[in-house]
Design a binder for these strands. Sequence first.
DNA 1: ATGGCTTGAGTGTCAAGA
Length: 254
Amino acid sequence: MKIAAWNVNSLKVRLPHVLDWLAAQQPDALCLQETKTEDKGFPFAELAAAGYTAIHNGQKTYNGVAILSRQGMEDVQRDIPDFDDPQKRIIAATVNGVRLVCAYIPNGSEVGSEKYEYKLRWLTALTAWLKEEMVRYPKLALLGDYNIAPDDRDVHDPVAWKDKILCSVPEREAFQGLVGLGLTDAFRLFEQPEQSFSWWDYRAAGFRRNLGLRIDHILLSPPLAQQCTACTVDKAPRKLERPSDHAPVIAELA
DNA sequence: ATGGCTTGAGTGTCAAGA
């Protein structure tokens, strides 16, 4: 089973890239973040024509998450239960016995800001919820844009980014809180090239100079980590005209 | 240099991203 996560930064703009990528990679499931649309603007028909059913938790302008799957999806859940949040950042479903949790974790804007406090609160709620979900669904994958670079290896310039947003100690501790549930960063199960990233700033030729961060992740529960045979970042779509600033992350499960 | 691009909103120019 091949699963993937991609922050597309507007599905309306990126639909051609997504359709091309689905045809090229043939994932069983793809988790999208930042669809930036309501259901009425979501391309259900185009995706169905490509062989994918879709579920969506969207809103106007910001956020929005979706799961695309070749197989049927069961027990669809939107949002973190009992966490009051108007922002559409979570959708989950079971595919082929695997619980897929698609997450767009808040950016946080700036350390110490109101949005940063929201990010940390949101991560606390996510972690508490997933602790229960892992009991109900032993085969669980948390895929998406975490907006956290877990380690200095995941940062092109760790000195410049030290204690900055996406790299601060409380954010990294929250990431380790997810690891503490028994989840494993699939990417680090394997040898990887130095300076592997999943996001590059549009500005200042960030991609060409590989000034990036690894902030998009696939975390796997123990049975899935056992089954994982590969995890990669596919930089190809980032090289296209009018790309998303994020590249897809892919995990293969035996 | 708190810049640089890109998107959505909406028709001015700003919020938000990371």
